[in-house]
Design a protein around this nucleic acid. Structure first.
Lengths: 120, 120
DNA sequence: TCAATACATTGAAGATCATCAATGCAGTGG
DNA sequence: CCACTGCATTGATGATCTTCAATGTATTGA
């Protein structure tokens, strides 16, 4: 249990005179929240997990088998992940083989790690 | 540029016979996505940032001054952060002094870090 | 050329989220 | 007791997200 030191403040004192310190620029905050958002869904996380462990061998119906949602929903999340640059795919005949972009995921991961560290 | 190795697959082969490998349990994925969600908003991130740098001295109208949204919206995000355990407050007369729960934030941060590492 | 397959896209419906004006409530000074 | 202040809550509105049936499109084997 930490004890928190609080200066007394007098009524009527417009309390916000002193500019609060901050380090997270609005722009950075927006970027960070977008990064977090890209990952913040169970299906997307599981897709990334599967792609990560089955390099280059995963088509959409594999994902359909593994996940509790229907094919259009999977395609939808695949699209979001693709737009975020986290995955890509290679069409091969009828199939679309998806794979993870480890570099981009790493970058995103370290942006998040840095962001969280900045809050500590 | 990585070259991706893909086994040929024959049409009609139900392609999902082989069980895909995964490590992220659905439950874990849900937890992780909730953790990410709790942080995934610019206003919440900036609130955490401000609380982190102004230990124990921050009331709601300070935040109102610093952030581009109105007071009820700030109260709303404060509530979400409080429900996530990331912050707490101490009422003192008319004011509510908010502070960050560094332990909880650290825990959440390391859950996220672990989760992302698992995807690598 | 035709039927079947793998996947994407569309469009609609419902769920969740973000925002703020209005209001409620407790504490304070007069 | 009253007016005021700081903050929470309510309720309404609009935006964004999630899901899936239906449909479209390209490719394949026959």
């Amino acid at each position: 249990m930490e004890t928190v030191q609080i200066e007394e403040r007098k009524r009527g004192t417009r309390c916000c005179e002193s500019v609060m310190e901050f380090r997270l620029e609005p722009k950075t905050a927006k970027q960070l929240s977008q990064d977090l958002h890209a990952l913040a869904h169970p299906v997307r996380l599981q897709i990334l997990d599967i792609l990560s462990r089955n390099e280059g061998k995963v088509c959409v119906c594999d994902l359909e088998e593994a996940l509790p949602v229907k094919q259009p929903t999977i395609s939808h999340h695949l699209r979001l992940l693709r737009e975020a640059g986290l995955i890509d795919c290679e069409r091969q005949g009828l199939w679309a083989y998806y794979f993870i972009n480890r570099d981009v995921l790493r970058e995103l991961g370290s942006r998040i790690a840095q962001g969280l560290k900045a809050l500590t």
